[in-house]
Simulated assay, not measured.
Amino acid sequence: MDIKKLRENNIVDRVEEVLQAAYSSNQAFNAVLDEAEPLAFKSLRDPEHEYLIKVSDALYWVERDAYLDELDHWEGQCQVNQHEAATAFIKVSDQQAVFLDLVDAIRFGRIAPFVGAGLSKPCGYPMWGEALRKIAQKLGGLDVQDIEPLMAQYDYLQAAQVLHETDAEIVRHFIKTEFRQRGAITGPVTLLPDLADGCIVTTNFDTVIEDLFREIKQPLDGYMHGMQAGNNFVQRLLRGERCILKLHGDAGQANTHVFTLAQYQEAYGGAAGQPFAFQNQLPRALRQIFISHSLLFLGCSLEQDKTLDLFKSVVDEAAFEIPDHFALLNEPATPQERARKEARLLQLKIRPLWYPTSHDAEGNPDHSLLEQILRLAIAVARRQVVFG
């Protein structure tokens, strides 16, 4: 076919449009190639005119296989560079074994993220201690100092009980308004779809997780909100459906809240040293996840709390083969504190992976290394990079 007639062929135009779009989608890579001097040659029609062709253009349109080979190499190197800090930290801190076992759990689809308030914090929501103190400030006749001894012991349920008994309506209103939908979803929480395609557990009232999965067209069809009845949650869990267990309930549904000590005891049993009521749906569902998945605790302090008491009761019962669980945790202030906390978690089959935090100019903690470690684990699980 005469080459001039190709200009009149719409099929050729459409093919070139598709190829041009593919080329343009690699702008960062093209910019790296184009750091070299462009190719130059004289015009035959006008010897004083010089054509300049960018290296990326020439390679793409003349030697596309070579272009794609170079692109693969560059992307691989970018992956390595992106994960360099996390890789170095895991090795220097001598935590390779825990990290690689976490990678295996991600690769084989065994992970069930257990999401605490720390993952919703970058999205504008308060931590639990912060929320309780804000409620106290709203209550007339109750000083924040009245709950500080409980806060120091991480006894948030009893602190919430004190607040609730002072004014239950203000507490319910605070939860409904403070944890309503806010701004952009950002931070490590955005990695949840890459970590798990099944069950997610959270202590959070907000809807960040549900909104995230809805945005990527993978809605969480199964759910249980606190003491809410029905929904066949455990059956959906066992079928491997995408589902979410909101242990404290949903902000907009006050009848689902498990926020105070009395509400917890109603939902779980276990009052005054009594055994947990595993015939109740909430502890039954949590136990099922604990024995059938590898939990990955994110944004949780994992200080002594009622959820850990439930896990301890399951371990002590010795009736189930319990898989390894994992936790990404902020490095304690002293080696003694770390050893104490690690020993307690290992008894619960929870293997911690510690990371340090820095602070910005305003004193806010920087947990960016947590996100880098998660990204590295996902990349290694997908065999995008090699850890070694």
Rank of each mutant, 00 (worst) to 15 (best):
H83L: 05
D65I: 05
D104R: 14
A97W: 10
D94P: 00
A97Y: 13
V103E: 04
K91W: 05
A97R: 13
Q77K: 12
I106K: 05
Q77N: 13
E63H: 12
Q95N: 09
T87N: 06
H73R: 13
N81Q: 15
L71Q: 03
A88L: 14
E63S: 07
W61R: 07
W61L: 08
K91P: 03
D69W: 05
D94N: 14
F89G: 01
H83G: 01
L68I: 12
T87A: 06
Q79S: 07
G76R: 14
V80K: 11
V98W: 06
W74A: 01
D69Y: 10
A105Y: 03
D94C: 08
F108K: 13
Q96V: 15
E63V: 06
R107K: 15
G109K: 08
T87L: 07
A88P: 02
H73C: 02
D72L: 12
Q96P: 04
A86N: 06
V103C: 11
D69N: 11
A86T: 08
G109L: 08
E70M: 11
G109F: 08
G76F: 12
G76W: 12
Q79G: 08
F89E: 01
Y67V: 00
I90R: 01
L100H: 04
A88K: 15
L102G: 03
R107L: 11
L71D: 02
V103R: 03
E75I: 13
F108N: 14
E75N: 08
E70A: 13
G76Y: 10
S93K: 12
Y67D: 00
F108I: 12
V103D: 04
L100C: 09
E84K: 14
C78D: 02
F99K: 03
D72N: 05
Q96R: 14
Q79M: 11
V103M: 10
E70C: 04
V62K: 07
T87E: 09
E63R: 09
W61K: 03
A105P: 02
D72Q: 11
D94S: 13
V98I: 15
K91S: 08
Y67G: 00
E63T: 06
V62C: 08
Q95V: 09
R64N: 14
L68K: 10
Q77W: 08
L100A: 02
A66Q: 11
W61C: 00
V62N: 11
D104C: 09
Q77T: 04
D69T: 14
D104F: 09
N81R: 15
E84T: 04
D101Y: 06
D72G: 00
V62A: 07
S93G: 04
D104S: 15
D104G: 10
A97L: 15
A85G: 00
A85L: 09
F99D: 01
Q77Y: 08
R107G: 08
V98E: 12
V80L: 14
L102S: 05
G76V: 07
W74S: 01
A97T: 15
D94R: 14
K91I: 14
K91T: 11
V92W: 06
H73N: 03
L71V: 05
A86S: 12
K91L: 13
F99T: 02
Y67T: 01
Y67R: 01
Q96T: 15
S93W: 10
